[in-house]
Design a protein around this nucleic acid. Structure first.
Lengths: 240, 240
DNA sequence: CGAGTCCTTGAAATGGATCAAACGCTGTGG
DNA sequence: CCACAGCGTTTGATCCATTTCAAGGACTCG
């Protein structure tokens, strides 16, 4: 078992303000795409818009679940721990994703949510969710779609990032990163090597060696900021 | 990457009859626990109760999704394939589980569903589901619980069966099998070694060697039917 | 009883883990 | 602006877990 960098203390978020869902730039991908303009003022009033820096902890496994969260920007990791201390990153979520859905059916969060790259996130109290479910017949469908999306991600995590030789997992991981935050120009922003290694259940060293190998093959090149990588998507796929 | 035994042709099910949900012995764990007696006769009428033998295929990834299924008895495996042919078992479902939920939000099934051990299963058309969602305010909550259950299983699959050394995965898998079909006397019924190896992403030989080792340790003993295994639950846990 | 299928075991080859050390950033203070 | 400290990354060498290949054994079905 490999270690995930120890959980940081929950950092204080910066409070950006009440969310302005009506004018939210990414509303079509979000939870509220089906609502009418008239709903936005009153029902959505209790929604806060927050900003968290890297390593901040948004919620913790086992903690009482009062809200769900909708990511506007940035990247977060969902970590699950077993009673014996084993832990693993089970999902990586980017813009448009919703997390903490378990708040709708249970008492506590099932995961710990940590920030990878500075996030801009909206916190939606479950009361608001229940209200919307009651008043808006097809709101439920939106919620169900988010359950499905999580399940799809989990399944992909199993086949793409937890099966077969490390080399393939790394390649699939890089392509998945590109998908999550569709970087222009096929450029991705890397996480820490420890995190990336933990994601595919390998060691930092091995992960690194695979990347080095891919660079040698010419299918990835280093971007400007050294935290960035340029992918040759077709080339990568052909190595699978 | 390890091979999963090739998909069998879809075997013909035996039609047991229209489901008798009202008197179903395991209704409390099932989808319809919240319905009133009066609903059972008309709304649930189109539900068929089917029986499939080992290796039968209930539905296929990509196929049009018209129904969801509720397992009364037996054991099935959910398999997902990538375009390049890679495939992996992503879930194992037993009595009380519901599968094919994606029929409620999409056009096609996301997995292939194969029988491991003879199943008794109910097929529920999506029209029936939509009807129930419309008429019964809290039916949705039941459905959501099933989404959550799948997600929990997927997450456990990731940490428990796809992380860390093979020995640990095997131990957790054995305990999980016990959970799924709570065999009396701590006895589980084994799948084929190929399947079990595929589940934890290892080779048949390695899986076998670990089992042999656990037998030597005295924490598992062979049951009568050679397809059965008796577990010393505490002993197994202590080896993690 | 024999054929087929699945399980078991052994020996050799390999991929990945681990340990240890050097390197290269990035930010800080002089 | 430079030097240095600190942290995360890179590389090398060794060791071990797991895979792979090969062959033998056991159960099941006709």
């Amino acid at each position: 078992m490999h270690n995930i960098p120890s959980l940081s203390l929950c950092a204080k978020p910066e409070w950006v303000g009440r969310a302005d869902c009506k004018h939210c730039a990414i509303r079509q991908m979000m939870l509220f795409s089906s609502l009418e303009a008239s709903d936005f003022d009153h029902i959505l009033e209790p929604i806060d818009n927050l900003r968290f820096g890297p390593k901040a902890c948004i919620y913790t496994q086992g903690e009482e679940s009062n809200s769900i969260y909708s990511i506007r920007n940035g990247l977060v990791k969902l970590i699950q721990s077993l009673p014996d201390g084993t832990q693993r990153i089970v999902r990586l979520l980017g813009p448009g994703a919703v997390t903490g859905l378990e708040a709708l059916v249970g008492e506590t969060y099932q995961h710990t949510l940590l920030v990878c790259q500075e996030v801009d996130i909206c916190r939606i109290p479950i009361e608001t969710m229940k209200q919307l479910e009651k008043d808006h017949p097809n709101f439920n469908e939106q919620v169900m779609k988010h359950w499905e999306q999580h399940l799809n991600l989990a399944d992909r995590w199993i086949i793409e990032l937890s099966s077969g030789p490390i080399r393939n997992r790394v390649i699939r991981f890089l392509l998945m990163l590109l998908e999550i935050k569709s970087g222009k120009n096929n450029t991705i922003r890397l996480l820490s090597y420890d995190d990336m290694a933990a994601i595919i259940d390998t060691s930092r060293e091995t992960f690194n060696r695979v990347i080095a190998d891919l660079k040698a093959n010419g299918v990835v090149k280093k971007g400007e900021s050294s935290k960035e990588l340029q992918l040759d998507v077709e080339g990568l796929k052909s190595l699978l």
